[in-house]
Each structure stands twice: as C-alpha cells, then as structure tokens.
C-alpha cells in the first residue's frame, strides 16, 4: 500500500503539487490524469524521489521513502517513461538486465529473467535478446521499456505517459497487454496520462489533477457519473458521458433469455459495444455468445439506453 500524505512541491515559489493526499491499495492500477502543467508528472516522480518533495511524505508498506537512499528506493520501483528511454548502446537483453545487474543478481538468474520477460512481452528471446534498441519498431521499444521496468519484479511500477509515442492501434494493444500483465503479476501500477479515455479504460481508480491540486480520486464509475468539479466534467467531455458510462459496464449482468438475429457480440464486451452493434445494424437486440460461440441470450437496445442514463 502506498500512502501519500499532504505532499507538496514548490519550484522557485511556484507550487506544482499542492497538498495531495491519496492511498493506493496493493495490486491497483491507478491513473493520474490531468492537462500538461497540472503537476501529475511531478507527483509521480516524487514517489521514486526523482523529485524530492518540499513537504509531506510518502509511505510504501508503512515505510517512509525518505529514510531509504534514493538509488536503492528506485531499484525497488519499476519506472517506464514516454519514448521508452532505452540505453542505445546496450542490447535489448542488457537493457532489461539493468536493475537485476545493479542488484548484483548472478548471471544465470539474470539471463533466465531476461528471457522470461521477453517471452511475456511476446518477443522471441533468441531473436531479440542481442538486438540494439535502434533495430526495433516503436511498439517493440515500448515493450522492452516496460520489460526493463519489471525486470527485478518490483511490487510497484510507475509509468509516465508510457503509450504517448505509439500510434492508436499499437497503443490499444499495449494497453491491453499491460492490463493482462498487471492482473497476472499483481503489480501495483501508477500511470500518468493526459488522455481521459486511457484513464477510464485502464484505471481501477482515477486521480484527476488540475493546477497542482488533486480534484477527485475515485473509481471510473464515480468520476463519470459524479464529477467533483466542472473541470473534471470538462475533461470527460460532456457529449460522451453516457457512452463512457456504458463502456464501463460489461454486458454479462444484462443478458436476458431470448433470441436475436444478426451478428453476435462476445460475453466480454461492454454495453457500449452492444449499443454500437445494435445502432449500426438497426436492430433492437443483439445476441451474446460465449468464447466458444455458444449463444447465451441477448442484450436489448432498451437495456443499453436505460444503463446509459445518469444513476440517481
């Protein structure tokens, strides 16, 4: 658990982070979202002390981070940044091995870990281990950057706009991969982004920052349905709120018995997918199939529309 208590940062009289307190439970994926200059990146960088707080403190599992030498603290915390920051003179394998080597793991253990991570990120170890970063595509570089951050199996991973440099298609895949890997490893992730879509799509909890202050820290559902301030509402985009709400609701609880014609949606789809499918094909209900293709029932257009309304 990470407890951030009354954290502030002043740069020459200017307050960039103003009295922020929040608690991040173990295994959560927390997204800090805000416009540029909101202080979100500074807040993130104070967690691994790349920026030293002016006041307040951070406890990780009850331990005050200021009592640990900064470089040792950082070796326990994964850190992935926009544009990956891979060391250009080191091979993919050497890049991933950075923190294990700093921690003086023995060579066999490092090599096994590098291959394990490459496989986890769907990069064939034999093919990629000895390449240089300049020989990889943007998506591959990004994956190696995250693999490096996870190399020493940190309990906490910090990510600063990790998908910012990727094109939309690769970004969607990278977000999906991150979600799966996070569920598998149980790593706590704090991710900074300016993209509310990304925040809602990825976050278990979302922290909205504006002008150095934490405006709201809540689940995506709460943020969408009950934005704390006008600014949070603006970030969400008022015209898209019903659709964002639908995208947060899986179809499964809304499946009703009955038949429907036409193309089916999967049981893992959201109500937004169901709505889109129904509207686009002009149907009032769409069938839902499980992974094997077996019919489970249907979701009606009326249900989707009802669920799109703001909860009272």
């Amino acid at each position: 658990m990470i407890e951030i208590e009354h954290l502030s940062k002043l740069f020459d009289e200017t307050c960039v982070v103003d009295d922020v307190s929040m608690t991040i439970p173990d295994g959560a994926l927390v997204v800090i979202v805000g416009t540029s200059g909101s202080g979100k990146t500074t807040l993130l960088r104070m967690i691994n002390r790349l920026v030293e707080p002016s006041s307040g403190r951070i406890l990780i599992d009850g331990r005050d981070t200021s009592t640990i030498p900064a470089h040792e603290l950082r070796r326990q915390i994964g850190y992935a940044i926009q544009g990956h920051g891979l060391f250009p003179h080191r091979t993919v394998g050497q890049n991933i091995a950075t923190v294990p080597n700093l921690l003086r793991w023995d060579a066999d253990r490092v090599k096994a870990r590098v291959d394990e991570l490459l496989a986890l990120f769907q990069l064939d170890p034999a093919e990629f281990r000895d390449r240089y970063p300049s020989q990889l595509s943007g998506g591959q570089q990004q994956r190696v950057g995250v693999a490096r951050a996870l190399a020493a199996a940190p309990k906490l991973l910090l990510m600063d706009e990790p998908f910012g440099a990727l094109d939309p298609i690769i970004r969607a895949r990278a977000q999906e991969d991150l979600r799966q890997i996070q569920r598998r490893l149980g790593t706590t992730i704090v991710l900074v982004t300016h993209d509310m879509n990304e925040a809602i799509h990825l976050g278990d909890r979302i922290a909205v920052m504006d002008r150095a202050k934490l405006l709201q820290y809540d689940t995506p559902q709460e943020i969408v349905t009950r934005p704390a301030t006008d600014f949070v509402g603006e970030l969400l985009g008022t015209g898209e709120r019903p659709f964002r709400l639908l995208s947060l609701q899986p179809v499964r609880p809304f499946i009703e018995p009955g038949e429907a014609t036409g193309a089916a949606i999967g049981e893992g789809a959201s109500l937004r997918d169901a709505l889109e499918e129904a509207l686009w094909s002009g149907r009032t209900a769409v069938p839902v199939h499980d992974i094997a293709g077996k019919p489970l029932g249907r979701v009606t257009l009326a249900t989707a529309i009802r669920q799109a309304a703001r909860p009272q």
Binding site: H71, L73, Y79, I81, H84, L86, F87, P88, V99, L102
Partner: peptide, 27 residues
C-alpha cells in the same frame, strides 16, 4: 546523451558514478 536516457538511468536506480561509467561515457 538524451534527457530520456538520463531520466531512465536515474529511474533504474543508478548512482551518479554508475550513470557516468555505464551510460554517459560509453555513449
């Protein structure tokens, strides 16, 4: 040496000396 590489070197927990010897001078 690009700012991202500096940032990554600090973020992985290299000390000042390690950053000089393992990243800056080789580059």
């Amino acid at each position: 040496v690009s700012p991202e590489v500096h940032e990554a070197a600090r973020g992985t927990g290299m000390t000042d000396g390690q950053r000089l010897l393992r990243v800056e001078l080789p580059l």
